[in-house]
Nucleic acid binder design. Structure first.
Lengths: 128, 128
DNA sequence: CAAGCTAATAGTAATAGTTACTATTAACTC
DNA sequence: GAGTTAATAGTAACTATTACTATTAGCTTG
């Protein structure tokens, strides 16, 4: 069980920058298209491979959308709200560690991570 | 915007019974195999179509696992704990309506549903 | 700082879960 | 019972993701 050697790669750093530069919670294809603006011949496989690595090393977060995976460059803890009308994902704050702690004590489960997802209608869709 | 006419079908009722009869939070393939024990020539497409309809009419719940969709026949509100070791999903109780209400008031979002997913190690995997 | 090792890449093929299509069957209406 | 059309079985197609392979390029070490 030794640490995986990880070399620097322009592709990986660019992908990370792309994910960190947006609030849209993009999927792999969006990230691919965006990264291609900077590295025109980057391969889609490279994008997927690096996104997985970035998740494994904790530099980005993985979200499950309807039929695909989305990514979030905001790795501080937060929850998500998905607007069912416009499909946008919002970062929100809601659950704190205290709630989780009391849960872990009640059950005999060891909680490593948790994710709250809310769905409904966002402010701007309510006003239109 | 009129209600969709929905005819009775043995296939759909059997699929519903299968989902309601288990706690394993099965995916489409499991449900297909299980339903085939009762209707040997049922088609996989029929299973998918009916699962989607059952979700739309609120008779079952849809969960997003790593790479596929899982279903839950328990439609009362509850949260989910996924064991990262054995992959099992557990129904748990944690969030109540009060937490959500205070959230909806803080932001100007209208919350229609929410889902808390915890991940970690379950009791039986901790003891082995 | 050049040689060697191998992680990472581009490009492509393959896979898995799911949806779409089509001719046929079977619930419901009158 | 005849007509209408939702639902079906079987199959093809689609989409997101992963696997494969020859080549490229970081990093290490002498």
């Amino acid at each position: 069980m030794e640490a995986i050697k990880q070399r620097y790669s322009k592709q990986r750093e660019t992908i990370l920058e792309v994910v960190q530069s947006t609030l849209v919670h993009p999927n792999a294809d969006w990230i691919y298209k965006e990264t291609r603006k900077r590295i025109p011949n980057i391969s889609l496989g490279t994008v997927y491979r690096n996104l997985n690595q970035l998740v494994e090393t904790g530099r980005i977060i993985k979200l499950k959308d309807e039929s695909m995976v989305r990514y979030d460059g905001n790795i501080g803890h937060h929850d998500h709200f998905r607007c069912a009308v416009c499909g946008k994902w919002y970062d929100v704050e809601m659950i704190d560690q205290a709630i989780i702690k009391s849960f872990a004590e009640k059950h005999d489960f060891q909680v490593e991570s948790f994710h709250l997802e809310l769905e409904g209608t966002c402010k701007s869709c309510l006003n239109s």
